[in-house]
Amino acid sequence: MNYIWLGLMVIALIFGAINGRIDAVTKAAVDNAAAAVAIALGLIGIMALWLGIMKIAEKGGIIRILSRAIRPLAKLLFPSIPSDHPAIGAMLMNMIANWLGLGNAATPLGLKAMEELQTLNKSKDTATNDMATFLALNTATICLIPMTVIAVRVQLGSGNPFEIISTTIVASTCAMIAGVTTAKLFQRLPTFRKSDPNRTKEESENDAGASHD
C-alpha cells in the first residue's frame, strides 16, 4: 500500500506539473479530502441501520442457519476459522448483499466481518491470510445485476439495456475466481509467509531452516 499510495501521489504531481494542471491537482486534493469525510459521515446512518438489523438476524438465528449451509465452502476458503465463528456469518451476509447489488448494505456488513476477523488476528496492524482472501472476494465480487450501469443504458435509449447482465456475470465471476486464487497462492510465497501474523512457531523455524539450505 505504501508504494501504491506513493506512486499515485508522485505520478499525479509530476504529470500535473508537466500537463500544466497543477492547480487542478491541488484542487482535487482539497476537494477529495472534504469528500472523504462526507462519505464517512454519510456512512454512520447506514452503518447503524444495517448493524442493527444484522444484530436482530444474529439473535434470531438466521445467520447461524445460513452459516451452517455454507460450511463446506467456508472450510475451503477460510480453513483457519472455526466453523461456528461469527466471522463466517458476517462474511456470508456481506457476500449476499454484494451479489444482490445492495451496495449500501454490503459495506456495513463487510466492516462487521472485518471486525470479527480481527478478533482472530494475533498482530492487529497486519492483515491475516483470511482477511486477504475476504478482501479478494470483495474487490472482485460476482455482480448479478449491475443496476447503476443499466439505469444509464435505459436513459440513453438502449434497445436492450439488460443484455449486458449475462456478460457481466461471466466477467465478474472470472474476476472473483482469479482474485481468490491469487490470494490463496500468494499467501504461500516466502515473503507473505514471513509476514503472516498467525503463523506458528514451527512454521517460522521451518522457514528459517529452509533458507539455510
Binding site: 472485518m114 497486519t126 472482485a140 472470472c174 481468490v180 491469487t182
Partner: peptide, 27 residues
C-alpha cells in the same frame, strides 16, 4: 475495510485485488 480495523500492512491483498481486476476486465 482495513481502515475499519486499523490494519496498515495489507500484505498480498492489493496484488490479489489487482489480478482480479485485470482478469475481470480482460474477461
Amino acid at each position: 475495510y482495513f481502515g475499519a480495523v486499523g490494519v496498515r500492512r495489507v500484505r498480498h491483498s492489493i496484488a490479489a485485488g489487482l489480478v482480479g481486476d485485470a482478469v475481470g476486465l480482460i474477461a
